Simulated assay, not measured.
Amino acid sequence: MNTALRITAFTAGLAAVFGLALGVGHATGTGPAEPRPATGHAAHSGPDTGHDSGHDGGHDSGSGAAAAEHLPGGLQVSERGYTLSVDNPFVTAGSPTDLRFRILGTDGRPVTAYQQEHEKELHLIVAPRDLSTFQHLHPTLAADGTWSATAAVPAAGEYRVFADFTPAGADEGLTLGADLHAAGDLRPAPLPDTGRTVTVDGYTVTLGGDLTPDRSSHLTLTISKDSTPITDLQPYLGAYGHLVALRAGDLAYLHVHPDTTTPGPGIGFTTTAPSGGSYRLFLDFQHQGTVHTAAFTVTTGDQQH
């Protein structure tokens, strides 16, 4: 299958192979109404239009040469003077883990004020290096700048924690990443072969679109249940769907917002991949007050199956 992702923030020299479906943060639905436009910096100033939006670290602002100056999101623990500091990166697998971390500012002190992006001040993604699981969490912020969240760490191994945020007063956001080490019996597994259709929580999600690297095209993820198309999706974090892509090998991060303005059954994303490689795609969608995550493995370019 020839599938691709639009990641114009990658530099031309990044040709490495671009490589979760566990619990995600749950949210209460607001009904099948039009999702309201996201607020924040300029790349989020209008409704989701299908462009990979926002943070120059993990999102594509679509600014051409300027965007190409930045590395993909999540590869660095420190960027533009901000640092992701995890209190304890060593945890034990098999039980819930209380994650505590801070975003240190350019003065070395914890940041305590943030702009709201897609209804939250910070989005936290947790994924293992083998990309077998995925969590989209929304931690709470204490007055001293400490963020906290409970994450599932089901198996031993190396995990990556992504903090996606925009500091108050900043023109644009960024995505920082840090390692999390889970002790236990390590049994790494290859990427699962999902094909174009997956089932999650009784929902069937089908991935449509044949794309090639360096060529803008369209992905559509269509949702049904018991062979009936779902037409009453609920907005989740201001949109009818959120697509996160992680590249196998280095876990470079991309968050894509849809161009869909109707509540199903299809959710469309405009995408382009910079090169061939293996990816994991994670679609978050909300129906009847519950958030679900559908996970796909896709391969692009010369490495397609």
Rank of each mutant, 00 (worst) to 15 (best):
V161K: 05
D130Y: 00
A239R: 13
R80T: 01
L180H: 01
V298R: 13
T293C: 12
G177Y: 00
A65H: 01
G238Q: 11
Q286I: 02
G31W: 08
A15Q: 11
A65V: 02
D302K: 14
R100S: 13
I7L: 11
A27T: 15
F18N: 12
G277M: 05
A93I: 03
T260M: 08
A295R: 11
T106S: 08
D60H: 13
D130N: 08
T166S: 14
T166F: 07
Q135H: 08
S63P: 00
D98H: 13
S61M: 14
G202H: 01
T92S: 13
G81D: 02
E172G: 10
A142I: 04
D98E: 15
G50L: 09
F90C: 01
G264V: 07
G184D: 01
G94W: 00
R109S: 08
D226K: 13
D250M: 09
I267K: 12
G46T: 13
K120P: 01
T30M: 12
V291I: 15
S216N: 06
V126W: 01
G249W: 00
D107Y: 10
A4E: 08
N2R: 14
G277S: 08
T3S: 10
N2H: 14
T272V: 05
L131E: 03
I7D: 02
R187H: 10
A155H: 10
H41L: 05
P35M: 09
L75H: 02
G301F: 10
L251C: 06
D302S: 14
T212K: 10
G105D: 09
D56S: 14
P258V: 02
F296N: 07
L14S: 06
G249P: 02
V91T: 02
A149S: 10
G62M: 05
D214H: 09
G74I: 04
L14G: 02
D259Y: 04
D179V: 09
A189Y: 00
T92G: 03
S278G: 08
T199M: 11
G268E: 10
A67G: 12
A65F: 01
Q115T: 15
N2G: 09
T175Y: 05
R160K: 13
T97E: 05
Q304S: 11
N2L: 14
G105M: 12
G145D: 04
P89I: 00
Q115N: 09
P229R: 12
G208Y: 12
D164A: 09
H242Q: 15
T175W: 04
A151Q: 08
T8Q: 09
F165R: 13
L251T: 02
A151D: 04
L122P: 03
A142K: 15
T28A: 15
A182R: 00
G268Q: 08
L243S: 10
S45Q: 14
I125S: 07
